[in-house]
Design a protein around this nucleic acid. Structure first.
Lengths: 220, 220
DNA sequence: TATGCGAGTAAACGCTGTTCACAAAATGAA
DNA sequence: TTCATTTTGTGAACAGCGTTTACTCGCATA
């Protein structure tokens, strides 16, 4: 019943907590993970460094919250891109390319969200936690898309749903990481590319979706 | 003329330098980037931390050498996989899957090699340096493969060589990163997967190559 | 034998995440 | 209101980090 206002004190606490996250967000987007330190955040909001530990157990915990929020934005963005009135083939490509473009709006966030190797990852093996994360929700709309493709006959019938979705995700992820990592991935090689970054993302998305489509190498 | 032995002093220097890299390699493979510190390396080889700076300008320089060596190993490994007597379609798939498997032999190395975001990357925009790196050489055998696919008619004729190669690389890279990042990517979602990791890598490689192939959705 | 150069070091600087003992303030109860 | 309790914020410190500096030592060459 106590809707948003549980008490004057709680609201104050949430406000400070929000300010910390907002300051972290700001610094992080601008200077990346290297520029973000507890002391830097503390300076930004005119608190002492130790104060932050009243709101977050560790720096890692704080960062995880930032990353999760970022995935929420990707999720939302891809969701708004989806226009169910469009033909499936085009929609699938738009969705794929949209994920990559949204990820690249905040390259620091995206790279950080996938930093670290499995054993030392907190949430990697934790299936219970994963299924409630925004990552998982984003993955969910991907499996929905594949399912629709399978049921409508746009995709080859012998494709396994889950593995196909994960393969798509991996391919999207790969290009997002490459572009984030290299200064200008499309025109990186010795020979200059004719393609702009936007065109290249569409090209890649087309290949990814095309590999799943049934039919005789569909035109266009 | 002076083959390997340029002088007794130089050899000693190279030996110590090698010991530093070897110690770094050892710690890095086991504990990842976080466990690797200059002081840790110094302990490992019984030197003082400052001594390392007589051999490497900075920690970053040392790490770059590790990464470059790692890409040399990937390059070598993928090269030995290639068996030109095999049919092209199979060879292309083996090559793609081989890259991913080799990358995953040392997940810490692979993730570290692609860590960081463009602006703060040393070699990202540096085309001259790139073209001589092992990364570039690995990319070279990829473009060769695509070229062969185009000329032999296995691949659709309208595919742009460079962009296609980069798209493949991105897709391979994506899966390698995903598996390295998540504890068990193939069976990560709520519903357990029927596919082993090895099978999934092959599945992904097949999709990647298939998206380029000409013909009427070739059987097998 | 004298000179100079490179290898190696201890100590320090400034930075990091984190903890601890303590002060201040807000809260709830009498 | 007044007192007690909990929460919030702080300054100082700890251990560790990459890196620099001033210094010593041993070796090679002139």
């Amino acid at each position: 019943m106590q809707d948003t206002d549980q008490s004057p004190a709680e609201r104050r606490r949430l406000r400070v907590r929000g300010a910390i996250l907002e300051a972290a967000e700001r610094v992080f987007a601008l200077e990346g993970a290297d520029g973000l330190s507890i002391r830097r955040i503390a300076d930004e909001i005119d608190y002492s460094p130790a104060a932050i530990y009243k709101y977050f157990g560790s720096k890692e915990e704080l960062l995880n919250e930032l990353k999760e929020a970022f995935f929420g934005r990707i999720l939302e963005s891809v969701n708004t891109i989806v226009d169910r009135s469009e033909p499936f083939a085009k929609r699938a490509r738009k969705c794929t390319a949209g994920y990559i473009r949204t990820a690249l709006e905040k390259p620091h966030h995206y790279v950080a969200a996938f930093a670290g190797v499995a054993p030392e990852m907190p949430m990697s093996g934790d299936l219970a936690g994963f299924s409630e994360s925004n990552r998982a929700r984003a993955f969910g709309i991907l499996t929905d898309l594949v399912e629709e493709g399978l049921e409508s006959g746009h995709f080859r019938a012998d494709l396994p749903l889950l593995e196909t979705a994960k393969s798509i995700w991996a391919s999207m992820h790969g290009l997002a990481m490459m572009i984030a990592h290299f200064n200008d991935f499309p025109s990186m090689a010795t020979m200059p590319s004719e393609m702009s970054q936007d065109q290249f993302i569409d090209f890649h998305a087309d290949l990814v979706v095309r590999s799943l489509e049934a039919g005789t190498e569909g035109a266009r």
